[in-house]
Structures are given as C-alpha cells and as structure tokens.
Design a protein around this nucleic acid. Sequence first.
DNA 1: CAATATCGTACTAGTAATAGTTACGATTAG
DNA 2: CTAATCGTAACTATTACTAGTACGATATTG
Lengths: 136, 136
Amino acid sequence: MSKDTRLARVAHVLVHMSFNEGTATSETIAAMLDTNPVVVRRIMGALREGGYVSSERGPNGGWRLERPLREITFLNIYRAFDPGSPFTIATSDDHPKCVVERAANRALSLALSEAAARFEQSLSKITLDQLLPRKT
Amino acid sequence: MSKDTRLARVAHVLVHMSFNEGTATSETIAAMLDTNPVVVRRIMGALREGGYVSSERGPNGGWRLERPLREITFLNIYRAFDPGSPFTIATSDDHPKCVVERAANRALSLALSEAAARFEQSLSKITLDQLLPRKT
DNA sequence: CAATATCGTACTAGTAATAGTTACGATTAG
DNA sequence: CTAATCGTAACTATTACTAGTACGATATTG
C-alpha cells in the first residue's frame, strides 16, 4: 500500500493559508503540494465537516481557514479523515474457533490499541501554531 | 495494501508445535493456516535466523521449536520479520526545503516513533506461554 | 442570460505490501 | 536410487490506499 500522507500535507497547507487572509483555490493549493486539484478537494472536504475550513463555489471561491492555528490539533485533522486502523499489522482469521488463535489475536489487538492510544495522545498535543517558523 | 498477519499466524503455529514434540512439515503447518507450504517456509525461515526454530531437509524433516514458549515474546517474532514502519501513515515529501513542511514532518515523526515504542513495549510483555488455554 | 471560475464526485489508474502459486533445485534417510 | 522435504526464484492475486480524468453543479460578473 502506498502510505497515507494526508495529515502532514494538510497541516502544511493550513499553515500557509493562515499567512494569507481570504481564500485559496484548489488549484493554488494543488500547486503547493505538487498534485491535482481533485486530491486537494478530497482532503479539504474532510476538514470542512469538522468546521476547520469552508469552501465557496464559483468565481472568487475557494477554501478559507475558519479557525486560528492554535485551535487546530493534529488529532483534529487525523480524526477528520475518519481513518481506519493506522497499522499495517492485523490479526489473523484462519481458524476463528481455535482458542490459541483467539488468544493470539486478543494479545495482539491489545498491543495495537495501546499503541493507537499513544499515537492519538501525541497528536493531541501538536497544534498548528507550533509549526510556525520562529521569529528568532 | 493488504494487512500483515504474519505475527498472529506464526504465534498460533508455534503454540501448536509445542504440543507435539518432534517436527512438523511445512505441509502440515500450511494446512493449519489454510495456506500454502511456501508461505510457511517464508515465515518460518525468518524465525530460524533468530534461533527460535530449526529446519531439517529430507524424509522425517520439518520444523522444530528450539526454545520454550515462555522464552519467546511477540517482540522477538515481530523483529524477526525485519519490519519496516508498522504504520500506514507517513510524512510528506513535497517541498523538502519548506520550513513549515519540515516542522510538520518533525512533529508527525515524533508522534509515530512514540507510538511505535509503545507498541514494541506492549509486544515485549507477551510471551507465547500466555496463549495456552487455561487448565482451570 | 451567457461565460467563466470554481467546487463536487463518480469512475479509473497507479502503487506497494503481503499472500498465494508454480516450478524446480538441493539435501538427506532408507 | 527413490522419495520426502526444505530452499528459493518468479510470477500472479489481493487489498487498501493515493493519484488522476472527466464531467456535472453552482455562483459571480457583465
């Protein structure tokens, strides 16, 4: 599978958007990310549902940042994408009735959920304003 | 990407192998996992390098468990597979010179490595003998 | 109302990892 | 020598993504 880079990319974009009041079009943002406007619409669309950005159609439309950077965390963004498991590792399903397989799956699931909880905890501490360049 | 189920599957197999002294052929193990002997050889081959199992060729050959279950942890198995990142999430690489992107990548990398450390810590506490059915 | 800018979205293509399969060679017991 | 078994290369299938194409919907402007 190719990796999911949406979180890092959109964090990057939102910080740049905060530099310019007004709206940025999908095309402009796509140029920033070396990609296609459709990719941008998909990513930004997910954030819109959480109220972090808004969009307007038609001429002079585009995307607008709706919250200050310090009020948006990596966890907010991560959850906006409605992600499945962030792991490439999963339990097995060969013999669902085998008590040994079930015990192995239970142990692995616990380790995965502990790691996922730690990941979300770390994400919750990162706000977008922390990404601003220091003004020495 | 399809998910990596090797850890759960091989843990299951090793526990069953402990029930029978002697060797188990790749074919026998493959039947247990509903798969093909070649898949088994690939998975078991990785464990052989860590000394957890050994293999013998020729008639009456097969795979033998070389360590007691309580001395094999999920972390031992996980590392035997020489895994890359266990995450589906990665940093972005669109504008490596942009200070904002770099800051976003740094923050995300830290969260990922904290979660990975937690995962390995959890795996290190699971020994295979914990998967044995309780004899009430 | 016409023209154009812009988002919305369904559909297809590309990608990267494990899983599965086939084929065949190497080794060893008897 | 024969048969059982592992070793491994090469190829295909599956899965779950991201990336890209095409076209429709909507809103502004004159």
